[in-house]
Design a protein around this nucleic acid. Structure first.
Lengths: 345, 345
DNA sequence: TGTTAGCACTCCATAATGATGAGTGCTAAC
DNA sequence: GTTAGCACTCATCATTATGGAGTGCTAACA
């Protein structure tokens, strides 16, 4: 049996209707609301075929049909027409509140959640290597010193340290110089014990302080390598009855709260930010995260600079409005491109 | 009618039982599980009295009784015996992960949620005034400059700026000096237009940059004045059937997600961190936040240094295990005291 | 006077029953 | 190939019965 044009049209109609209502859709509905001019009986025959082909399924005998994962897949791959997103200038709103990367991303999550009525996630970009650009020690008072660590890509970290011995201004300057000569341009792996020893011989009374600082640098770099995830609109999940079942809801919400599992969507090797801005759709069982098996997740990839990517994700029921979501995401990716190209924040 | 000793004992028994089961409790249960040696009939008479006094209520005729808000209130005020918290050394776990304030507080929220099975919130401390201790400009490359702003209390903020004109190293140093002489020790209100103009006359070509920096300082101080709220264990709410009703759950969870309303618990004037470490209990309608009218919230106050407070809160059903929660909170406040006194992080 | 046993009564929860209606598959006719 | 018609299935909803938990009241008892 083949998927002829008519079958496709019927399938499309079924899915579209189901996306709207969430109820199984029957033959009479299709017969009335399409321009095919076919009786419900004919539609029934076609629907039987579509069921045999695995695109739709009956939740029980004598109920209408609902799409299977395979049906949804066909739909997002070939059948749907993307909607152009009407919310087109989010950019200004975005910039207004977002003075820093962290806030920007949180804001992106929030706006997407508000616009789509689904749950959203945004990951921080994943860097490949983190080298030390420079660091700077400043004495804050007699016993405290502030270390500002600047990593390649202008990531800035700061730590406050307390010294057991009183600090001498000139010594801090010297220490600063020594640390910079030794560490500038180094990656974390390159800071080995030999180097540390060598450095320590040069710093006299401040050995303790130096180890603390080195530790801090290590964790700072480490920390920046970690991907953080911001979420928003988690409670939107409860708007969809098929997910509001106590157990499902709890699972999904706690995944969103704990975030660790969400990074799985980033780790997916197949980033291709070229075509369609790297938008990918994971339907039901296609999700690797267990709690999401009843959801669909749409992810998009944003690029901060050459080779440095982060992901944006929308999490909703399988019957989510794919067209709108994809449109909104494409739009948002455009806005982000603008922002990062102009490097305003 | 008076609340005699026997009535108190019965009330206590009713509440205790209800805290455990969440089911209305009947006269026979009390008759069996207390050492009062009274028949169910006698208990019934007493219960009728207690109902008349407003401490308990019947959800419907011929059901057992459940405590009213007034009943709970009496219970937490006089009847309960605090449990000593068995989880007594959280301190080490806490320090391990918490290299910075932000992480520490997040971690506190997490641990409390794990220990209590309720939702938790932790607010950042509220400072009264924020003065500039010093700031430091560093040229990162030809067009970019990093400003590190250190506020009183060693709050460190950093911003990156881009200049339109190429930067000269000596100019940056001069700028640094000028900014510091003008701004050191100033509060945000003290940075007025007159001062800004005066400053601008001194900086030659960098007027643009200076306004940007001043803006950044203003928002940085502002930002630090804002109270942020960390939450954890929001999904624990769904473990309690009386809160799992779709609408209630959505309301509570979105309050937890959006956080704004939660700061109301901080704004409460009556902070008295002395007795009992400032633990306060808000039962049902005593909560100002609408979505929490079916919950109880227990808050505690931690003190970072003289006069600088933050709050920790536990949010659960009205039948929460008050004894345990209060115990756990007291313990946690102790741990935090330790940490802040020793100023490790 | 306080306590208790006994009994009628109330009301929730649960299961069983039946009616309704949406939707199907199949067959026969167009 | 398409359609009308019909018997059939099954979820949903309202209705009804049944059991049990718990009460309030009364009368008897210590």
């Amino acid at each position: 049996m083949e998927l002829d044009d008519r079958k496709l049209k019927i399938l499309q109609a079924i899915i579209k209707n189901y996306l709207e209502t969430g109820e199984p859709v029957g033959s009479r509905t299709i017969s009335k609301y399409t321009d095919l001019n076919l009786s419900s009986a004919t539609i029934r025959n076609e629907m039987a075929d579509l069921e045999e082909l695995g695109y739709i399924i009956q939740p029980h005998t004598s109920a209408g049909r609902i799409p299977t994962d395979k049906g949804y897949r066909l739909y997002v791959d070939t059948l749907m027409q993307e909607k152009v997103d009407e919310v087109n200038n989010m950019r200004d709103d975005l910039l207004e509140k977002a003075d820093r990367m962290e806030n920007l991303l949180q804001q992106v999550a929030k706006m997407l959640a508000a616009n789509t009525n689904y749950a959203t996630m945004v990951t921080t970009p994943k860097y490949r290597s983190r080298k030390i650009k420079f660091l700077q020690l400043t004495d804050v008072d007699e016993y405290q010193v502030l270390a500002v660590i600047v990593l390649e890509g202008n990531i800035v970290k700061n730590r406050m340290f307390r010294s057991d011995v009183a600090l001498v201004k000139e010594d801090v300057l010297k220490l600063n110089l020594a640390l910079n000569t030794f560490l500038q341009g180094l990656d974390i792996e390159e800071i080995n014990i030999g180097l540390v020893q060598k450095l320590k011989t040069q710093v006299g009374a401040y050995q303790e302080l130096v180890s603390e600082i080195l530790d801090a640098i290590a964790t700072a770099i480490q920390e920046e390598g970690d991907i953080r995830v911001y979420t928003s609109g988690a409670t939107n999940i409860l708007k969809y009855p098929e997910l509001s079942d106590m157990n499902k809801a709890r699972d999904i919400l706690s995944t969103l709260e704990n975030k660790e599992e969400l990074t799985q969507f980033v780790e997916n090797g197949d980033i291709k930010p070229d075509e369609k801005r790297g938008i990918q759709v994971y339907i039901g069982d296609e999700n690797k995260v267990d709690s999401m098996k009843d959801c669909s997740v749409v992810t998009a990839t944003y690029e901060i600079e050459e080779g440095i990517y982060g992901k944006v994700g929308i999490i909703g029921p399988k019957r989510m409005d794919y067209e709108r979501v994809v449109g909104t995401l494409q739009n948002m990716m455009g806005q982000l491109d603008d922002i990062f190209k102009n490097k305003k924040p």
